[in-house]
Amino acid sequence: MPAPRAGLFVTCLVDLMRPSIGFAAARLIEAAGCTVVVPDRQTCCGQPAYNSGDRATAKSLALQTIRAFADCEYVVAPSGSCAAMLKVHYPCLVSGEPDLEAEADAFAAKVHELCTFLTDIRPIASVPGRYDGRVTYHDACSGLRELGIKSAPRRLLAAVEGLELTEMPESEACCGFGGLFAEKYADISNAIVTRKTDNAATAEASLLLAGDLGCLMNMAGKLTRTGHPLACRHIAEVLAGELTDPPIGHSAVSTP
C-alpha cells in the first residue's frame, strides 16, 4: 500500500517567521509513514480576517485552502489555532450553501493538528528527537478548547529521550496573544503575558514549549525583553530533534 499523502498546512507564521518548524513537522509526518506534500496555493488560514469581522475575506481564504489540499488524504498543521480554523470554523463560514458545506465538511474531516495526528491518527512508533533537560508546556487556547488537545503533546514529550516535563501553574491560561489583540490592546495583552511568563518561569525549565507559533512569539518576545533566560521553541522542533536554529527571538550569532 502506498504511503498516504499528507498535505502540510504550514501556517503563515511558520512560513514567514520560522521555517524550521515546518521542516520539523514534515520530518515527523514522514516518521508517521506519510508522504509530505506542500501545496503552494496555500497562504493564510484566514483567521486574522475572520476574527476581525472580515467574513468575506475569511471565506475566500477558506475556499482557497480547501481546494489547495484537494488531492491530500490528510491535512496536518503545526498549530492548534490554524487547525481549529480549518476544522471547526471553515464549515461555519460556508453554512447555508449546501455544496460548499459538503466540501468544507469533507475537508474538515481530514484536518489534524500535528500532535494529535502523531498520537491518534497515524501513531508514530518512536519520537526522533532527544533533549537533555527540563521543559514546560503551554496549552494554547484554540487547540485546547476547540480541539481538546491536552494529552497528545504530553504523551509525545514523554517519549523524547532525556526530556523531563515540569508543569507550570495555570498551564491552560491564555498567554495574551489573541492575534491582532496583542497589537490593538497592547497593555492588556502585556498584563496577561506577564502573568503567563511569570508562571512559566516557576517551572525552572530551560525550554518553554507550545504548539502555536503566535503564542510562542508573544511569550518569547516578553521573555527576551525582560532578559529572562527561559527560551521558547515549538514542540515540533523538540520532537523532531530540529534544534540547530536558535530558540525563538534568539540570535544565531550569540545564543544566550
Binding site: D15, G22, F23, A186, N190, M217, A220, G221, I248
Partner: peptide, 24 residues
C-alpha cells in the same frame, strides 16, 4: 510598525527565507 506589540515585548525576527522557498 507594531508599536503596540513592541511597547512591552520584542518581536522575534524571521529566519530569513520562507518555508515555501526552502521546501521547493
Amino acid at each position: 510598525l507594531a508599536r503596540g506589540w513592541l511597547k512591552h515585548r520584542d518581536l522575534p525576527a524571521p529566519q530569513g527565507r520562507t518555508f515555501q522557498q526552502l521546501w521547493k
